[in-house]
Structures are given as structure tokens and as C-alpha cells.
Design a protein around this nucleic acid. Structure first.
Lengths: 163, 163
DNA sequence: GTAGGATGGTTCGAAATTGAACCGCTCGCG
DNA sequence: CGCGAGCGGTTCAATTTCGAACCATCCTAC
């Protein structure tokens, strides 16, 4: 508590416990989602997230790099997964008229169908294990926490453009 | 708000936004940690976590499966990473006297040294981007949230032993 | 004791992710 | 126009992770 030198380099035991638990809990949750999705619906969490973003998008389509940005992965991973989803018939790819470089990925009817099965299934898990346990104060706190965390990450990402 | 059928299968827009942001933010944070660790200290986040758990443990050693449980990965992944850490000289493995099946993994002096460099580096990142932004209420809310989330995951993990 | 089931680890193959290298296309500026 | 910078995607090798199969050891009950 008063060991300034210590505190500045490491975390206090309590804070450290919170941080460790954060890591543990996010991993465990991720694993449960992954398993549920894989077992019940034959898709990975990444593939599910791709489809969710497409369904949210205007006209059910998005470019490769837009997808990469939204699901926070490398572009090459999106190329790979889009191919797999296309093989499954859940997604289609075609060139964009306006920009010959771009590749559109669009959700097929089958893709939408699969999403309508999988969505409620995994959302019920998320609610059950996570969201439903929050009381009102906790929910607003979590919202705020995520907001500032997001903003901090944004800031940290522009290394030079400071100010 | 009143569309009961809708609400029960999907998430309300606001809650959905929180959930999406949760996924995004955890991914982004993970990536920043990974990159920082790799660039500045030549180890992956998994390897770092292994060493942290060892340093926390009594006598600086832990068995393979204890490690697997604590960092929440498959046993085979621990075998793999322990081998890599051993190649770097940061860790040593030897058989346990009491149980011939078990393999002890212990932190070497070099490992402890590396950890003492890397720890403050990544913890400062975590504080800067995450922990320091929390006010008192948010911190206690987060602690509680993580606690119940953890408990919920525990419950969900015993599929049969209900009651 | 000893058979059978559980526990601890390793090995193997399959799948996924990453970053770098690369190609083609677009756009702005002279 | 046309050149060069930068964007959008793909490909490739390297790394990591997972789960299943497997072996060895331990332990309990008979």
C-alpha cells in the first residue's frame, strides 16, 4: 500500500488477483462459446462472428478488410475463413464494381439460416453465464469500463500522432 | 422492449453493443500484450503466463497439468510451450519423486530474471490502458462481475452433478 | 497381490492465426 | 497522361493450439 517502488512496477495483490481473474474468465468464456458453437452448429467462433458482422451490415455484405477490422484479426485470417465459409455455402464472394481490388463477402440464405439457429443458442449461453448476472449498477459500470478501455486502446494505437 | 419473443432469442441493441464491445476490447488488449511481450522480451503471452504462475507457486515449480489448468489451455499446449521455454533456458523440467508420472516445471534464475524485466513492462501497459482508468466504484463492480462470472462458469462446467 | 479405472504426460495430425512478401488496382499530383 | 504512393487481397511459411490416441504410473477394491 505504501511501498511506492513496489507498487509502481508490480500490482498490489488485490489488483493482481482481479487482473488474473480477468484473463482466466475471458479464456474460459471463449472456450465455452467455441465448443458450443462447434458441437451444436458446426462453425467456429470466428466464423460465427464473421456472419454476425455480415448480417448487421447494410445489404448483408462487407469487404475483407472491413471484416478484419471488425473481428480484430489479420486480413489473411479473414481470407482463410471466408473461403471455408464459402465452401460450406454460408457465404459468397464476388468482386466489387466500383473498386476492382475489393472483394465483397455476402451472407447467403443458408448463412442467414445457420445464423438464426446459432445466434440464440450462443446468446443464451452468454446471458446465462454473463449478462443476466449483472444488476443495474454493474451493467452501467461495465458499459463505462468497456468504453474507456476502448478509448484507451484507440489512443495507444496512434503512437506518433500524439496531440 | 416489449417484444418478448424477440428479446428471448436475441439481445436488445444496447446489450448487444456491450457484448460486441466486450469481444472487441478483449481481443485488442490481448493483441497489444502479445505484441509488446514479443517485441520487447522475446516471449509470447502464453509463455509469460506460464512463468508468472511458476513464480507465484511454492518453490517456483508446478506440474504440467496444474499449469494447464491455471492458464486455461490444453495439456498438450503446455508440453509444447514448456519445451520451448526450456530451450530458452527460462525453465527446467524434471521428474517428481513422489509420483513418477508427473513432470515438474521450475523457473530458472534466467527465467526469473526475464520475468522481472517483462512483468513491469506489461503490467504498466495493463494499468495504463485498463486498470488505472477505473474509479473506485468501477473497480469494485468489476471485481464483483468477474467473481460471479467465474462462479457461473464453474456451475456450467458440471453438466450432470446438478444439485 | 492384482485387475481395473483414474490420473499425468506426450505424441501426432488437423486447423487456425500471424506477418511478410507480393500483385494489381486506385488516386492524386505534376 | 503517367508516375508513384498507398490500399485491398492473397499466398506462403512459421507458429501455436486443440483433441484424440496412447503409454505409464498410481490407487482402490477385491
Amino acid at each position: 500500500m505504501s511501498a511506492g517502488d513496489f507498487e509502481s512496477r508490480w500490482l498490489s495483490p488485490e489488483v493482481n488477483a482481479v487482473w488474473t481473474q480477468f484473463l482466466t474468465v475471458t479464456h474460459r468464456l471463449e472456450q465455452r462459446i467455441e465448443r458450443r458453437l462447434q458441437e451444436h452448429h458446426g462453425i467456429s467462433h470466428t466464423q460465427y462472428e464473421i456472419m454476425v458482422r455480415l448480417a448487421d451490415a447494410d445489404g448483408d455484405h462487407l469487404r475483407m478488410s472491413e471484416l478484419a477490422e471488425r473481428i480484430v484479426t489479420a486480413k489473411s485470417a479473414v481470407t482463410y475463413q471466408a473461403k471455408r465459409l464459402a465452401d460450406m455455402g454460408l457465404v459468397e464472394t464476388h468482386k466489387c464494381d466500383h473498386d476492382n481490388r475489393a472483394t465483397w463477402v455476402t451472407l447467403t440464405a443458408a448463412g442467414r439460416g445457420r445464423l438464426e439457429e446459432a445466434g440464440p443458442c450462443i446468446l443464451s449461453l452468454v446471458r446465462e453465464v454473463f449478462l443476466d448476472s449483472l444488476d443495474c449498477d454493474q451493467a452501467t459500470a461495465l458499459t463505462k469500463i468497456l468504453g474507456t478501455l476502448s478509448a484507451n486502446l484507440d489512443d495507444a494505437e496512434r503512437p506518433v500522432k500524439t496531440q
